[in-house]
Write a protein that binds this DNA or RNA. Structure first.
Lengths: 348, 348
DNA sequence: CTGAAAGCGCTTACAG
DNA sequence: CTGAAAGCGCTTACAG
């Protein structure tokens, strides 16, 4: 039975004929260190239990300045990558007795800043952020105020803070290297807008590195930024353009699951067949890839590990802040894995 | 620039040489009704702005007894149906100035009860709940205490409260009717565990109704509850069993997207082809269905509308509670749509 | 071993 | 038109 009638510390103290101080100490596990007799402690515990006492979180937060809540900002919680990430963060965080507030920034810098402000205003104890911001100005602000946070998924080269990422460059490199090793030379890359996001920049870098290593000349014409609002249409356009120009690549490296979905649709609707007409490898693994025909080769991110690491670092930082030691910045760079399926044609 | 240095009402009052009362009134838009001069109001507003004043939410919450936060409990935020729902709820709620706390119950009754307690303890102003609970005991508890909440997706027949659902029975009926109209007679139904959940019960009802209407005898052997922990294995087993028994149905109605994914995989791995060997229609539309070959016919739920309705009802209830009028229970039953693709074979 | 008291920052009767 | 004061429920020095 869930009770709503609010029982307060005072009620318990009153009923027991002791002070609120004593009750508070006992309930917070500070009975022993304050030398409260075992008997008294037991009486307090029992009564609190039987009265179904729950400390008022507002009073507690007001007094202690902490909420036991952490915030998570991602671009869109309905994107399967982020919803899984959120799920892992939720689990990790709640194991440590924290609650989670999940927000979607919609890739809008303005919205993200509002969200950041809102979370801080709600006095979350820390934030895990996959930022859409182009400049680090606001994030540096957080840092200067010693506010605990960790950047995941997307980071900034020129700015030192807590980060948990995947080796996007290497992951992309391996994917494209795999394509090349299957005999391909005309390989395109699709990156999603906004193209300044580090994941997209790094994956494009990895793509270029792989081509370079195999002495395949880079071709701007094969590097496309797909606007996230109209993926399908844009890919159709590009494909048609390539076709009329007689410049159709034999393979495409897709840097993100959303572009992959739109591309798969476009490729199918234009009557192209994978991998006969065009090979494809995508970043991010989603259910669809395993079940598509043919199954799509893709680069898997260790989502759970990203979440666990981020939470661990954040919680450490929150604790350190409590002790007012100085914060040490930590970086985690996790490895991706390539799952080979049947979307790349063996050439020659 | 995000400021962390906390500016309080007292700081503003002090700086302006007025009382906290006045500042509080002005900032809460009660300046006019308390006859504060326009000039004073302006001075307060300006200073608050320039000092970047943000009211302390704990103090506010403690004093007013509300958090401006609402809770959402679903079984799993990483399930695409729920992640989209959560996203819509997030949008709707934030338009009204509320924040959202999303939690996953993992279909565990125990976890759900803890989550419920936690949210109430955090004093969320209301809860939107897709409950996994078999009995309504705890939910009735909430109701008795006049705590604002609305049940979505999953409901209870024997218990009157706010609900927003989809017409699961009709949706399933239409799907199965569609299958029958394509000439099928041996039609199986897959439902996910726990089978007591209203969505699964209702969809199975709809399936039965359709068969009855067309005078097709019901066959227990074709009605399967698939345990959510091992969907793929179970479906493989069932399919093999049907095959050896020479009882293979010509079509399957799948009551949930998770079973659909596992079933598609099982069907493929057993070398069966859709729709030649077996036809399939699923509830819930996910990206996969559109892109699968063949594309899967499915029943679409109006996710955004479910979310919007639930939020509207909840917020109304929260307001009513503030006015301490009595709460009126409202029920919304939304219609599903069937998207016909190519997963059902035309027989005869 | 235990308690009285202050104070976190806000809102809201109440008083003038 | 405006302010002094109480109180929401907690934790934590401080005192004994």
């Amino acid at each position: 039975m869930i009770k709503n009638k609010k029982v307060s510390l005072a009620d318990i103290a009153m009923a027991l004929g002791v002070s609120k101080t004593l009750v508070s100490m006992v309930l917070n596990g500070k009975g022993d260190e304050n030398g409260i007799s075992k008997k008294t402690q037991e009486r307090v515990m029992e009564l609190a239990e039987s009265m179904n006492y729950k400390p008022n979180q507002f009073a507690r937060g007001l007094r202690m300045g902490r909420s036991n809540t952490i915030g998570l900002i991602v671009s869109d919680i309905s994107n399967p990558f982020y919803s899984r990430l959120a799920r892992s963060v939720e689990d990790a965080v709640s194991e440590s007795g924290y609650n989670l507030m999940i927000c979607s920034s919609d890739e809008s810098e303005e919205k993200e800043m509002k969200l950041l402000e809102m979370l801080i205003n709600k006095q979350v104890d820390g934030i895990i952020l996959s930022s859409t911001l182009d400049s680090t100005e606001h994030i540096e602000g957080l840092q200067n105020e010693n506010f605990p946070f960790v950047l995941i998924d997307r980071i900034y080269n020129d700015f030192e803070t807590n980060t948990v990422v995947v080796d996007n460059k290497l992951g992309a490199y391996e994917a494209v290297d795999f394509i090349i090793n299957n005999g391909h030379k005309k390989i395109a890359a699709f990156v999603i807008s906004p193209a300044h996001i580090s994941t997209q920049v790094d994956r494009l870098e990895g793509y270029k590195d792989a081509l370079k290593k195999h002495s395949i000349p880079l071709n701007q014409y094969y590097q496309k930024v797909i606007p996230r609002e109209e993926i399908y249409q844009t890919v159709c356009q590009i494909l048609t353009e390539w076709k009329t120009d007689h410049m159709m690549p034999t393979a495409i490296f897709v840097a993100n699951n959303q572009i992959a979905i739109g591309s798969l649709e476009a490729i199918r609707d234009l009557g192209l067949s994978i991998p006969k007409d065009i090979s494809i490898v995508s970043f991010d693994d989603i259910d669809l890839f395993k079940l598509y025909s043919p199954p799509i080769t893709s680069v898997i991110q260790p989502i759970n590990s990203i979440a666990r690491n981020a939470v661990e670092i954040l919680l450490d930082n929150i604790k350190i802040k409590d002790n007012s030691d100085s914060l040490i910045k930590v970086h985690k760079c996790l490895q991706t894995n390539i799952v080979v399926r049947n979307s790349v044609l063996k050439l020659g």
